[in-house]
Design a protein around this nucleic acid. Sequence first.
RNA 1: GCAGGGAUACUCAAGCGGCCAAAGAGGGGGGUCUGUAAAACCCCUGCCCGUGCGGCUACGCAGGUUCGAAUCCUGCUCCCUGCACCA
Length: 400
Amino acid sequence: MNAKLQEALATLKHGTVDIIPEADLVKKLEKSAKIGKPLCVKLGLDPTAPDIHIGFGVVLHKLREFQDLGHTAVLIVGGFTARIGDPSDRSSTRRMLTKDEVEANLRDYKRQAFKILDPNRTEFRDNSEWLEHLDFAKLLELTSRYTVAGMLEREDFSKRFKEGSPISIIEFMYPLAQAYDSVAVQADIELGGTDQRFNLLIGRAIQERYGQEPQVCVITPLLEGIDGVKKMSKSIGNYVGIDEPPNQMFGKLMSIPDVLIEKYVKLVTNLDWNTLNNEHPKIQKEKMACAVIARYHSQAAAEAALEEFERVFSRKERPTGVQKAYLEKALLKNNETVRIVDLISATGLVKSKSEAKRLIEQGAVEVDEVRIDSFEADVPFKEGVLVKVGKKMFAEVYLR
RNA sequence: GCAGGGAUACUCAAGCGGCCAAAGAGGGGGGUCUGUAAAACCCCUGCCCGUGCGGCUACGCAGGUUCGAAUCCUGCUCCCUGCACCA
């Protein structure tokens, strides 16, 4: 192994949980270098989540490292699987997207993905391209190449099977479809989080049974969401999107539990944990948050977000860039006061007047930095009056 | 096909004629405190009304019984579990 290859391997290995098998990765890298053909590095996208979050960013950055070594990223868009829907979330009847919507989503997705990936070495492939033409005979052929026992190796399946809880056949089809994607694009390497390990391994097995050289599975760690418990995911809502405004990112990142700081620093920033290790947790978080914002926006944006956060939450001062809301003139009494409930409800910060009343009773409402203690109160109105609801919602109210 | 079980608020899940806007948990929100949108503790969590032992809407759908139904009856839809069937 030459020095260059060794260095490449070290880079690629860094920050992964597992590479299955590592020896094959070396072989593939060597071969690629020798014949001058880039490796095909596959990554499946979740078509239901058009917002890329920083957890998924971890995998994308790994993919970028492959690109920087001259390899090709192949992103699989689950156009077909998306249309079939996932039976595991039973009640939610997902609306079928039109072709235009799918395209618009994909455009937005690309815009986000290219914050990390190199467009010149990226291909997007829609799996309807091949899955749509997989007729029943071919499907049977595919299913004959994997066993039920193999499927039951997945812990979730075997557990449910033992318990006698239902597993629909379609659930076996998903990993197979995903594996077939690998066959279709002749993937050399597939990336995925630890939750995808099983699926990636099936891809490997299936490729082999189709006479292809099996892909190497590169497993990256999963990032817990800002709730600190569950994995970061769009559907749980505990995520930080890479496209979110800096201030929002900052707030969310500051709210992660302290125990997660180290993991965040290591996974989503390029800061060196050793230099932060002995700092105060609050400082660690600030630096982490700034690094993330710098990565996805800019250094200046990071500094501005920090400054704003200090202003609003540490010094409790008036925030900048507060959203504007409008109040119907008819609600003014004697041209100078408003019922507090009407004012709050005009901001659109609350879902209902009942909620507004509840919040007022709980002392969550301030008007021009004065706390309101009764929902029957009238407050003086002036243009641009600042309304604060809870710790983090603000609005400036003007007359309409 | 036969036999059982089930469908309750954002989610899970109690309730099985009135005391039910419906226990409990999770989630979400608020307050206090602080180091922060952390932790901890307390509180709230259907909607409407200038708020009262107030009104309205809600316990799968449609009817019925009853002074009164989430709770009982009838029909329907959907789901699950056994058993049977199995090219």
